[in-house]
């Protein structure tokens, strides 16, 4: 099986601070990868390097045999369509209604007719259980609802992989469940996913692979069972102990 995403020797510096220190890894089709680890360890930066929202300082990111790091803006835009992204702070477009949020890229990027886009958007909103909010503005929705809209918006482009950047960290505890449920359904349908998360339960139940990241490197990779039941690395053990205490 060929790798959908291949990461080779990926490094990122902000000024003099080295945030990512030569990462390697690969994601194959249908796989769910959960990236866990302490805050400030570089998890989000890593994820943002995958669709080049953050430009790596060195190293390669290859997506479906295209070396992203070598592409120009236009080529990059075409590939970004295929990599849906969900953000910690939702980032719904504040000037548009829910359905307009979902439709925007369909109309602008895929040149879909308004009718067609409407139909698709409504069915996606139905999938995340928010069809009745189609004409509401984001500001009137709860955090959980906003995040589900954001997921529908990313799914609209029919992506090959979904990147989740701590999708539940900004939510009130009672809303975490509804978002995780949507994500679990996606995984069950065979979507390839890379999820940066603090939800250990989700990682345990849904992930095929768990990558533990600390200090800009993957300190340990393995199946959920390996990582959560038999961690080898001291830093992993440390981190898990702290999480379980809390």
């Amino acid at each position: 099986m060929t790798d959908m995403i291949k990461i080779e020797d990926l490094s990122k510096k902000f000024g003099d601070t080295e945030v990512l220190k030569g990462l390697n890894g690969s994601v194959s089709k249908g796989q769910v990868i959960c990236v866990i680890g302490p805050s400030g360890g570089g998890k989000s930066t890593f994820l943002r390097c995958l669709n080049l929202l953050e430009k790596p300082t060195s190293g390669k990111v290859t997506f479906e045999s295209n070396e992203l790091t070598a592409l120009n803006e236009t080529q990059l835009n075409e590939l970004r369509e295929k990599m849906g992204m969900v953000f910690q702070s939702f980032n719904l477009f504040a000037n548009m209604t829910v359905i307009e949020n979902v439709k925007l890229a369909l109309v602008k990027v895929k040149n879909m007719s308004d009718d067609e886009a409407n139909k698709l958007a409504l069915s996606l909103l139905d999938q995340v259980g928010l069809q009745e909010k189609a004409d509401a503005y984001p500001a009137s929705l709860s955090g959980g609802q906003q995040q589900r809209v954001a997921i529908a918006r990313a799914l609209a482009m029919n992506p090959d992989v979904m990147l989740f950047d701590e999708p539940t960290s900004a939510l009130d505890p009672e809303m975490v469940g509804e978002v995780l449920k949507v994500m679990q359904d996606l995984a069950n349908d065979g979507m390839t996913m890379v999820v940066v998360t603090h939800e250990m339960g989700f990682a345990k139940n849904v992930a095929d692979q768990v990558w533990f990241m600390d200090g800009g490197v993957f300190a340990e990779k393995g199946t959920p069972e390996q990582i959560f039941e038999h961690p080898k690395n001291d830093r992993t053990k440390d981190f898990l102990a702290k999480i379980l205490e809390a």
Binding site: E81, M85, L92, F93, L104
Partner: peptide
């Protein structure tokens, strides 16, 4: 970032 991640140009 959200717009760019959807493939919209600058």
């Amino acid at each position: 970032e959200a717009a760019r991640s959807l493939g919209l140009s600058n």
